[in-house]
Computed example of a mutant assay.
Amino acid sequence: MADDRTHVQEFFTVRAADWDSRFPDDGPAYAAAVEALGLRHGDAVLDAGCGTGRALAALREAVGPGGTVLGVDLTPAMLETAVRAGRDRSGALLLADAERLPLREGVLDAVFAAGLVSHLTHPGPALLELARVVRPGGQLALFHPVGRAALAARHGRALTDDDLRAEPVLRPLLAGSGWRLSTYVDEDERFLVRAVRVD
């Protein structure tokens, strides 16, 4: 598992400095995805795999000054880029593995995860770990600013039915990890799955 984490860190380390400039128009899509979570003032939310922290300002706005916003990422260079961009003013940043979170059980109202699923070493256990830290009835949003087909085209590969983000694959994976899928949207301009933490 350490080798897999190292591979993810290496992938993102070399891309951290220019990550935001490569995707300059994603802000509205992030804001819309955060809004879809239905967060309330005072909620506690985690941005799992927060990268350069592009969702943190929208998350802070959603939970208000009395809420808690925590961004967790595995790659120091991504967090450093987030700090240089001033995004640490919207939430606390923590270097940690989303598959082994240093949080107590049930302390969060929601988890937002942009682009995380594709980079998980062990998706089932990772989703179970996210469920562990969310209260029953809490929310999970799995987001990407482009849909599966658009992302596959961007990377020059074919879209396959065994893609982890395909609904027939993801729905049972979530169900086996403490989540009930409530919304599945896969359009060219966004991928957004919402799930509810079950008892």
Rank of each mutant, 00 (worst) to 15 (best):
A57M: 07
G67W: 03
P24F: 04
G49Y: 02
P28M: 12
A32Y: 13
G64E: 06
D25Y: 11
A31C: 05
L56D: 00
E61S: 13
Y30C: 06
D47G: 03
D43A: 10
A44D: 13
R60F: 12
T52Q: 02
V45R: 00
D25F: 13
L46I: 01
A57H: 11
D47A: 00
A55K: 06
R22L: 12
H41F: 15
W19Q: 01
Y30G: 09
W19S: 08
H41R: 07
D25P: 10
H41V: 15
P65D: 15
A44N: 12
F23N: 06
R40S: 12
R60L: 04
S21N: 00
T52F: 08
E35G: 10
A58T: 07
D25H: 15
A62H: 04
A31G: 06
A58I: 06
G51Y: 03
G49M: 05
G66T: 11
T52I: 03
D25I: 11
V69T: 14
V63H: 05
G64T: 07
R60C: 06
A48T: 02
G64N: 05
G53F: 00
G27L: 14
A44V: 09
L59P: 03
G66C: 09
V69H: 10
A29C: 13
V34D: 04
G49D: 00
V45K: 06
A44M: 09
D26E: 12
G53L: 00
D47N: 00
R22K: 00
D25C: 09
V45A: 08
L56V: 04
P65A: 14
G27S: 12
W19T: 05
A48C: 08
L56H: 02
G27C: 12
R22S: 04
V69N: 10
E61F: 03
R60Q: 04
C50M: 06
R40H: 13
D26H: 15
G66P: 02
R60M: 07
C50F: 03
L37C: 06
V45M: 01
A62R: 00
R54P: 07
A58S: 06
A57Y: 04
D43E: 00
A32C: 09
E61W: 09
W19G: 01
H41G: 15
A62I: 10
D18K: 12
A31L: 11
A58H: 08
V34H: 04
S21Y: 00
L46Y: 05
G64A: 13
A36R: 02
D20I: 08
A55W: 06
E35S: 09
R22G: 01
